[in-house]
């Protein structure tokens, strides 16, 4: 399987927070969950790998190519969706699409129609008329219509009702089956139980673990930390709370 994304030694300093030494890799067709509690550094990691913020150290490569040197070329092959972010709230979807498609040489109108139908999206609606789940689906449609091989999603399931969440996770599995890699951040561990192959767990800006979910659970089970991701996360984060009160 080809490497889609490779991140090593990522570091970003803020006055009151530092993300340090984050490394992970995603293969074709893999679903990776980026987990951690609120404020752990998940969004900072995502912004770093999208070149939205300047990192102080680290190497980011997509498809074996450096992000800094091949940014425009790489952006043709990836798609991003933020959970609560919507663009041009009062413009009709078809107008947004008519502009967006001009930037992508690989835009596939047939694929666009297919995903619009699949997700039951109406292009005469505006983003402000869509529910949170539909907004995520619209962003997915846009990414998939330009042939994105990697979807980077920042908390796509937060704000969704359990049915929509389950539906979206099902979509992830279907896309992964077609070779699309997915990196999605979440603090909802049950999302990962349902669909993730691997996880990258960030705790207080540091990498706690990156690898397959089965390996991590096995390791934690043998150390008596917990038997599910939720138990493991609670173990680490609660321990932290005890330290603070001590």
């Amino acid at each position: 399987m080809g490497k889609v994304l490779s991140v090593s030694g990522l570091r970003k300093e803020y006055p009151k927070f530092t993300l340090d030494n984050i490394s992970f890799e995603i293969d074709e067709g893999m679903i990776m969950g980026l987990i951690g509690r609120n404020g752990a550094g998940k969004t900072t990691t995502i912004k770093s790998i999208l070149n939205l913020i300047h990192t102080s150290a680290g190497e980011i490569q997509y498809f074996g190519k450096s992000l800094n040197e091949h940014e425009a070329e790489i952006k043709h092959q990836i798609g991003y969706a933020g959970g609560a972010v919507d663009y041009y709230k009062k413009k009709k979807i078809k107008k947004i699409i008519s502009v967006t498609k001009t930037f992508y040489s690989d835009w596939d109108d047939e694929a666009y129609r297919k995903y619009m139908d699949l997700f039951e999206l109406d292009e005469d609606k505006t983003p402000s008329e869509l529910s949170e789940g539909m907004k995520v689906k619209l962003n997915l449609t846009m990414a998939l219509s330009h042939g994105a091989k990697l979807l980077i999603l920042d908390e796509p399931t937060s704000g969704l009702d359990p049915v929509s969440r389950d539906e979206l996770l099902e979509v992830f599995k279907l896309l992964a089956g077609k070779g699309v890699a997915i990196l999605f951040s979440t603090h909802i561990t049950s999302d990962l139980d349902k669909c993730a192959d691997s996880i990258t767990y960030i705790r207080k800006g540091q990498l706690q673990f990156s690898g397959t979910m089965a390996d991590y659970i096995e390791k934690c089970k043998s150390e008596g930390i917990g038997e599910t991701l939720e138990e493991i996360m609670l173990h680490y984060e609660k321990e932290n709370l005890h330290e603070k009160f001590a």
């Binding site: 952006k75 991003y80 041009y88």
Partner: peptide, 15 residues
């Protein structure tokens, strides 16, 4: 600004 235009733009394959 209200419509996240700058974020939309920098995510496009443009400099």
């Amino acid at each position: 600004r209200e419509n996240n235009d700058i974020l939309y733009t920098v995510l496009l394959p443009v400099s």
